[in-house]
Design a protein around this nucleic acid. Structure first.
Lengths: 202, 202
DNA sequence: CACCTCATATGAACATTGTCAACATAGGAG
DNA sequence: CTCCTATGTTGACAATGTTCATATGAGGTG
């Protein structure tokens, strides 16, 4: 009664509320009805905008992916210089951003990469996190900072290891403190002249 | 009425049935009640053996972890020889087994490493998949097959990348065909004398 | 302005689910 | 045999996702 969502803002409002709820309780404990109740709206009104509860959650998952991508974009924006040091800082910074997202937004991470949100197979024209990683690797290669001959192996390998480390963090298999060790190991394995100290970036 | 579970086999039977259901529908679509119905048992009987639905699912998740570990153990048993080639075969075989499990048992993998089953932080006395990976790495190191100086970086790195590749497969972000490329890249990055051909193992 | 129409919200209802408390019973210990 | 404990049953409750018929408002058309 009081507020009427007849202006089409309900969809957005529901995604926002669902996002907030996912952040605190995790996607599995989110209820359509309680979202509707918080918004002072009938439960069935959701079905004018979403086919399904999962459909709403997929929208939230897309927000999660966007949030991750934004964190990575911020890292790139923070190191605009075109120097070898900047290239290394961008690379390590991207990895750190990915892992920080997993730590800060555990529940959102789980939804975004969970069973509900079907991630589409990566494509050449991707502009998200994967693309940012590969172009950072291209940068490193251009400055000849990578060990010789390994460039082509790194796309999948760096992606998998970073994503894997993120899920290990999320699952609690590994403590947040091991992020530094991970980044350092990555640098030692990939850079030509050895380690990038943990303190070098942030 | 007909069959009586008064011999204590209900718990095991429920885990078995739940495991079967998880395999086909995924953990999120299994219901306590339907499991009980299939077993011709009252829904509430479950609560004599499990605190919770999640408690039952955790038991299923433990089965998943055991199944993964068994696959890896089988690989080790298949390469008992103590030669450099055997060491490399064991290493690649372990990775392949991990990824094959993710592909074959997607739903079980998702449950085992999902939010419901809290994986305990890895410990030195672990005897599961992680331990098998690290001892395989020790083997490689003993035969001096690893690039110099990288041994200590590989524990976390190999684990994270393999687990990450597995989750990428499960999420559909990467097609099953890329497993070979992944294993090959891993070999090129880790072994001292370059690539291990995809056909070399299996 | 009046009207109509479509997108949107509501209400009541349904089936299903997890969970619980009170009760029944089986089967071994004494 | 008797009793006790572990195990299974019955019936109920609240919450959830979903649907359908209905109401209502907003915006364009006459």
């Amino acid at each position: 009664m009081s507020r009427n969502y007849h202006h089409g803002a309900l969809a957005e409002a529901m995604v926002d509320q669902a996002l907030a709820d996912v952040r605190v309780q995790g996607a599995e404990h989110v209820s359509l009805r309680s979202i509707a109740q918080t918004l002072e709206v009938s439960p069935s009104s959701a079905y004018n905008h979403f086919a399904d509860k999962d459909d709403l959650l997929r929208a939230v998952g897309a927000c999660g992916l966007a949030a991750l991508d934004e964190r990575m974009a911020r890292v790139l924006a923070a190191h605009p210089t075109d120097s070898p040091d900047a290239a290394r800082a961008r690379f390590s910074g991207l990895g750190r951003a990915y892992l920080a997202f997993a730590i800060d937004e555990t529940h959102l991470f789980q939804l975004t990469f969970g069973p509900i949100c079907a991630v589409q197979e990566i494509s050449p024209e991707d502009t998200g996190p994967y693309n940012k990683l590969t172009t950072a690797l291209d940068d490193l290669d251009r400055w000849q900072l990578l060990k010789p001959g390994i460039r082509s192996d790194l796309d999948l390998m760096v992606w998998a290891s970073t994503h894997g480390m993120a899920t290990l963090l999320v699952e609690g298999a590994v403590p947040p403190e091991s992020v530094d060790a991970f980044i350092d190991s990555m640098a030692r394995l990939v850079f030509i002249e050895g380690a990038l100290s943990a303190a070098e970036v942030r």
